[in-house]
């Protein structure tokens, strides 16, 4: 099918015509660089370790808070078990993932070691308490649920104290 060449197809196929878009390519590279910069682990300084600890505390408080609310809901027999169990599992999974992410971080300085010594046990207790809650809910064991609730409240106040000392 013979088609007249349109002007935009004219310039020699070998060279780059002025209309060749290098600007979008550059923009794409810039975005990719930004993405990569966002994804790589930040340089480990005491400040960034502290920030990570703060974030960990906030996220753990959220998971623990969910657990506490679930204990109250169970006490009042206000929910069906699929809902309570699913929400408890989600909280436990979230806490576990948060604790793991923090635990794999390398503390850069001695000061960070102290922070880690304070936060790590809290992480473990939180995760275990949420696991206990999940197990107790599945068994519909009210005594165990209450016990998990007590532990969760204790962890929560420990985390809140730490949060205050960090901010």
């Amino acid at each position: 099918m013979l088609q007249p060449r349109s002007p935009s197809q004219e310039p020699g196929r070998t060279g780059r015509s002025p209309a060749q878009p290098t600007a979008p390519v550059l923009a794409l590279v810039a975005v990719l660089l930004l993405l990569v910069a966002g994804c790589t682990a930040p340089t480990p300084t005491a400040g960034s370790y502290r920030d990570a600890a703060e974030q960990t505390v906030t996220d753990l408080l959220s998971a623990v808070g969910t657990g506490v609310l679930l204990v109250e809901i169970h006490r009042g027999d206000r929910a069906f078990s699929p809902y309570a169990e699913t929400t408890a599992e989600d909280a436990e999974d979230a806490a576990r993932s948060i604790a793991d992410t923090f635990g794999t971080r390398q503390p850069p300085t001695a000061g960070s070691d102290a922070l880690r010594a304070e936060l790590s046990p809290l992480c473990d207790t939180a995760v275990n308490a949420l696991a206990d809650l999940r197990i107790a809910l599945k068994r519909d064991d009210s005594a165990a649920v209450e016990a998990a609730g007590r532990t969760l409240r204790a962890v929560s106040s420990g985390l809140s104290d730490l949060e205050e000392s960090l901010s």
Binding site: Q3, S6, S8, Q9, A19, P21
Partner: peptide, 10 residues
């Protein structure tokens, strides 16, 4: 494609 200009159009 001929009317969507440039490389993508081709």
């Amino acid at each position: 494609g001929g009317r969507i200009a440039g490389r993508f159009g081709r």
